[in-house]
């Protein structure tokens, strides 16, 4: 494997780690809200969160390209502030990936939170736990599996994306050239050896991740 391929791999892992961290931080309150709210806004928020599941990545990528571009308010402000554009940068890639993988974090968390019995949270409050305390001490441990699945799926899905990355990030080595782009380029330039190596790595990784999730889903929870 060439140095460029290794750089693409490392960039991909870095991107996936950052995106997963952001998604867990974002998905936890959002998933909790969706699981517990009686607000009429809930179905709308749920639909928006699920959009990346059905939209072609090019559609999302197109809107992001416009929304984050230097001509847009966000992209313009970013340019003012940092002197660089948001599109075709690592930061832009992170933003796009967070949106693209949002349902993969929010949906498992929401499902896990919905399974936390309200009576247990009441019991915690009757024992002097504030709602936030009850969330951390009861809801989070009981949703541990949901957190793991959300993290693994966010990580894996970020690694596997292509369309959005291509639209928003382009193909800048060391900045936006992730593995899936590198494979595409290798095929375009008929470097099938490189394409084989990188593809095999992604294939084995994805399979291993999904196997882990499947195994973990079956394991019964234990009291400590």
């Amino acid at each position: 494997m060439s140095g460029a391929d290794a750089a693409a791999l490392w960039l991909t892992v870095r991107l996936a780690l950052v995106v997963t961290a952001i998604l867990l931080a974002l998905g936890t309150p959002l998933g909790w809200w969706l699981a517990r709210t009686r607000s009429r806004a809930r179905p709308f928020v749920e639909a928006v969160v699920a959009l990346p599941l059905v939209l072609p990545p090019t559609v999302l990528g197109f809107y992001l390209l416009i929304g984050l571009g230097p001509a847009s308010p966000i992209g313009g402000a970013w340019l003012e502030l940092t002197g660089g554009t948001l599109t075709f940068s690592f930061t832009g890639l992170v933003l796009a990936s967070v949106l693209y993988s949002l349902p993969f974090a929010v949906q498992p968390l929401q499902a896990a939170f919905e399974a936390v019995p309200e009576p247990l949270l009441e019991a915690a409050q009757s024992l002097r736990a504030s709602p936030l305390d009850a969330f951390w001490s009861i809801a989070v441990p009981l949703s541990a599996r949901g957190f793991l699945i959300a993290a693994v799926l966010s990580f894996a899905h970020t690694i596997g994306e292509f369309g959005v990355v291509l639209m928003v990030g382009g193909n800048i080595a060391g900045e936006t050239r992730v593995v899936s782009i590198a494979i595409y380029e290798a095929v375009e330039t008929l470097s099938y050896g490189d394409a084989h190596a990188l593809s095999l790595i992604l294939l084995s990784f994805s399979f291993a991740v999904l196997l882990c999730v499947a195994l973990f889903r079956r394991r019964p929870a234990r009291a400590v």
Binding site: P119, L120, E122, A123, A124, I138, P141, L142, A221, A223, V224
Partner: peptide, 11 residues
């Protein structure tokens, strides 16, 4: 409560 409501993840 009627059903005890012990926390299942704690001893």
């Amino acid at each position: 409560f009627q059903d005890g409501r012990l926390f299942p993840h704690l001893s």
